[in-house]
Design a protein around this nucleic acid. Structure first.
Length: 293
DNA sequence: CTAGGATCCTGTCAGC
DNA sequence: TGCTGACAGGATCCTA
């Protein structure tokens, strides 16, 4: 669920909170959530750099090892600072749900990383699809997901995007932009939103797209993801316990995602939900070309 | 090679 | 109330 904008939000949140802090202890509560080298290999080290590649985070440690983090469907990162009382400031991002407000560790906490100064990072993940994975330099180079990952939306040219779409002419547009080898970081929300901006029904086959529509699609994906990053992702932003302020991309910006039954903000038609590429898909039957079913 | 479906896992919600 | 199936902001593996 966390897509490129949410992961970027996490990256920025972590940079100001745990960069250069020493890890004092790591508690793995679910074995499958921790992969690669044992956690002991990074205890005593600190995080010296953080980068994002698509929906994955790569933390570089002071001993040269890396921690790859992938939140998959339900992962979330929570950082508590200061004393673990009511005054503790909290940063919470990733899959937005009530646990953002709850006491940590919680029912779905899979890994706890304790830093110096009483700073604690919680990796929560209800469905256990996500993971933290310790790799050495070679391991990062050989990591399949990273090797196959397509270019970032802003690093890609329109020509490149067009050529990639042409390699999947019989597949629905949505299936192709969700493919991380084609373009990095797009998930179900921004796929639907990007298609709406480009006025294309997500089920249209790539081979039926005009070059102009493909250009609009790339532009639309960039636009919706940038807007989300600028507002702190579709998840909650920083807050102090008992505050619970929501920073909410979905409510503010979503034109179609989870708006089925509501009226289109552009034309007033009813937003519909269907299934494309095996995923719930939201669209405006009037604004988006090819939507007649 | 591509496309589509099952699969990993837990929880929630709609419909009997 | 209790059960059942569908579905979920992802990626991979298997099959056709």
């Amino acid at each position: 669920m966390p897509e490129l904008p949410e992961v970027e939000t996490i990256k920025r949140g972590l940079l100001t909170r745990i960069l250069n802090k020493r890890i004092m202890r790591i508690v793995v509560l679910n074995e499958k959530s921790w992969r690669g080298l044992p956690s002991e290999r990074i205890v005593g080290e600190s995080i010296v750099a953080i980068e994002r590649r698509g929906k994955a985070l790569l933390l570089r440690m002071s001993n040269g090892l890396y921690v790859m983090v992938h939140l998959r469907m339900t992962g979330q990162i929570i950082v508590d600072e200061g004393e673990s009382g009511e005054e503790a400031a909290r940063f919470a991002a990733g899959h937005p749900d009530e646990s953002f407000r709850e006491k940590m560790p919680g029912r779905h906490t899979r890994v706890v990383i304790e830093f110096e100064d009483g700073v604690r990072l919680y990796f929560n993940d209800l469905r256990k699809f996500g993971f933290m994975k310790v790799l050495d330099e070679l391991g990062v180079q050989e990591e399949r997901f990273l090797r196959k990952l397509g270019p970032e939306p802003w690093e890609m040219t329109e020509d490149d995007f067009w050529e990639r779409l042409q390699r999947h002419r019989t597949a629905p547009v949505k299936a192709v932009i969700l493919n991380q080898e084609v373009i990095a970081g797009v998930g179900n929300i921004y796929a639907d939103e990007g298609c709406f901006v480009a006025r294309i029904y997500p089920g249209v086959r790539c081979g039926e797209l005009t070059r102009e529509e493909a250009d609009k699609l790339l532009e639309g994906l960039r636009e919706v993801m940038q807007a989300s990053i600028d507002s702190g992702g579709s998840t909650m932003k920083d807050y102090v316990k008992a505050d619970g302020t929501r920073g909410d991309y979905l409510e503010k910006f979503a034109q179609v995602f989870r708006r089925n039954g509501k009226s289109c903000r552009e034309c007033g038609a009813e937003i519909l939900k269907t299934r494309v590429a095996g995923r719930g898909t939201h669209y405006c039957p009037r604004c988006q070309r090819g939507a007649e079913c």
